[in-house]
Design a protein around this nucleic acid. Structure first.
Lengths: 156, 156
DNA sequence: CTTTTTGCAAAGCGTTTGCATTGAA
DNA sequence: TTCAATGCAAACGCTTTGCAAAAAG
């Protein structure tokens, strides 16, 4: 039904599915393609609305379950958040996060210094570490400005 | 009703409440005391069950709302998690977290190297950073052992 | 006496489950 | 033909809201 069929760059995805005995369904391919293109950190619902445009019959449920499956096989990360709907991070390369305490926005950034951090010995004794991430909390430009006007509590 | 009344070490707490125009209620005091004593990262429900023992008439709702209020005024942190109930962290000193991917356990640890990390300049331009934390993901000893036996997918 | 806070109950939101149907292999 | 994946709907868990009654300052 599409112009350039299944030929975007799905080969690695197909390989991963095979490795994990997952069937290559058109829904999964559609979700994967849109996910890889996502620049922010979409929720299941946001992904559902994006994929639905090209796949009107897909259910929210399939999108949600597929994203969880992708997380299980290491195609996406689930971002730890302080609440609200789950957010998925399609960037699996090492990177770090800034969270805005007011609007909740999550911003990716890179830092060689952070990437090069070692894992403390006393941690390695008791735990096997797969990933490491520095998480910064604060205020984005917009919210910093807003706070100046609002009489809101400053959380230190 | 209690042996050593309101005299544990609530003075700083009372001061903070006054600063934020919050009334000093027995519920808030009870929750605060138990919270400061909590060694893990309790959920609202866990705190409710703890406080209920000494305060049988307290409602879950008061505990939950109080914890959120405490978070607002900087007496506790809300720990970002990948799902499940919200967890509160009573330790407001700089420290770092290890998350077990299988059992979800969160372990605190200290690291001078991590504490001494600078914030990248390009971040400081656009964001005001309040806190910084290194988050490690992996497997705790118990779950590492379990995985050896279970035929479970290894993430990463 | 005024204004918060509490407790309760209902509503809300996002996630998860069960199951019949569909579709990939 | 077989077994996993899908879509739908209902159930679930946790969080939030609204409001009358109680309590703090």
């Amino acid at each position: 039904m599409q112009k350039h069929e299944i030929s975007d760059c799905l080969d690695p995805f197909i390989q991963v599915c095979k490795n994990f005995d997952l069937k290559i369904t058109p829904q999964r391919c559609a979700i994967y393609k849109k996910l890889m293109r996502a620049k922010n950190h979409p929720t299941a619902d946001e992904m559902f609305n994006i994929v639905k445009k090209e796949f009107p019959n897909i259910s929210y449920d399939t999108v949600n379950r597929t994203l969880l499956t992708f997380a299980e096989i290491g195609l996406v990360d689930i971002i730890p958040t302080k609440g609200g709907p789950r957010r998925f991070d399609p960037d699996m390369d090492e990177h770090h996060h800034f969270h805005c305490l007011d609007c909740g926005k999550i911003v990716d950034f890179s830092s060689d210094e952070f990437d090069n951090l070692g894992i403390p010995d006393h941690i390695q004794d008791d735990f096997t570490v797969f990933t490491k991430r520095v998480v910064l909390n604060g205020l984005c430009k917009k919210c910093r400005k807003k706070r100046g006007l609002k009489d809101r509590i400053i959380v230190t």
